[in-house]
């Protein structure tokens, strides 16, 4: 039950996107987000859709997994669509029934927004979480934010905390499973009764979970000290991040995509006038 969460998970692989420098991926993701919102005209947006599809193909992550990652967000997507369909008014009235008025513009904007949301979620999850291991990700963030060190921001410490937090998510999920089994074996019931009863039933899980989390934190701190961890000062890396030609090619592709979207926006405006 708890092992079915795919959003925010890393799928190891060796595709072009997996091999791109995580720092570049990080910055390019921001560009990609801007790109999605810049596309104003239909043609430009179609191009963004094609661009997203090619990212999916390049990452070689199965469509099934991507759809599974979208599952938890179905409610938000439907909610946005419904709001847009019913609340946006325009010129072409399609349905006029009692107080419900649906305009063609509303449907168009709903389709736009839903597609935009899907692009947003799949694009960022592929570029960042699905193809980048948590360690690479936090390393990249540390490097990108390293200028802040001049302002006495403890960048290394923050990134180490993030790495540890991410590392322990699966461990804690496993632990929760174990504790739940143990308490169920003692007759605990998590599935029935009123809300207050169910919240109360969580206590036998939460207390042991917190106790063991603190114990683990203690052990980990000691193990790190035993291996002479002293913070980021003068620490070297096993994997130095170095930009290679591939990273610049990927960046070039992104810049071209940017230009194409701008151009398509201009063209459609020009044609409509």
């Amino acid at each position: 039950m708890l092992s079915e969460i795919t959003l925010g998970q890393y799928f190891p692989g060796n595709s072009v996107i997996h091999r791109t420098d995580p720092r570049f991926k990080f910055v390019l993701t921001i560009f990609y987000l801007v790109l999605i919102f810049m596309a104003k005209s239909d043609v430009a947006f179609l191009f963004v859709l094609l661009f997203t599809a090619s990212i999916i193909l390049l990452s070689r992550i199965s469509l099934k997994l991507i759809l599974k990652g979208l599952k938890p967000l179905v409610f938000i997507i439907i909610f946005t669509a419904v709001i847009n369909i019913f609340w946006i008014s325009g010129e072409t009235l399609l349905v006029d029934f009692w107080i419900i008025k649906i305009y063609a513009e509303g449907i168009a904007s709903a389709v736009f927004l839903v597609l935009r949301l899907i692009c947003l979620i799949t694009g960022t999850s592929i570029l960042i979480s699905y193809t980048t291991s948590p360690v690479e990700l936090t390393d990249a963030m540390e490097r990108l934010f390293s200028p802040l060190k001049k302002l006495k921001v403890p960048v290394h410490d923050f990134s180490m905390m993030m790495t540890i937090a991410l590392r322990f998510i699966p461990t804690l999920i496993e632990e929760t499973d174990k504790i739940m089994s143990a308490q169920k074996a003692r007759g605990a019931d998590f599935e029935s009764g009123s809300i207050i009863r169910r919240v109360k039933a969580m206590i036998p899980i939460l207390i042991p979970l917190f106790v063991s989390a603190f114990r683990r934190a203690d052990d980990l701190a000691q193990a790190m000290e035993c291996r002479c961890y002293m913070g980021g000062e003068g620490r070297t890396r096993m994997k130095e991040m170095k930009a290679n030609p591939l990273d610049f090619i990927v960046t070039a592709v992104m810049v071209v995509a940017f230009a194409v979207v701008l151009l398509l926006n201009q063209l459609t405006i020009a044609f409509s006038i």
Binding site: K178, I179, S181, A182, K184, A185, P208
Partner: peptide, 20 residues
């Protein structure tokens, strides 16, 4: 099921982590 759980007592590995 609760009857079954009462009849079959299950002690997991390292059960001390279930104390609360």
């Amino acid at each position: 099921m609760r009857w079954v759980r009462g009849k079959v007592g299950l002690v997991f590995q390292y059960p001390e982590y279930q104390l609360f």
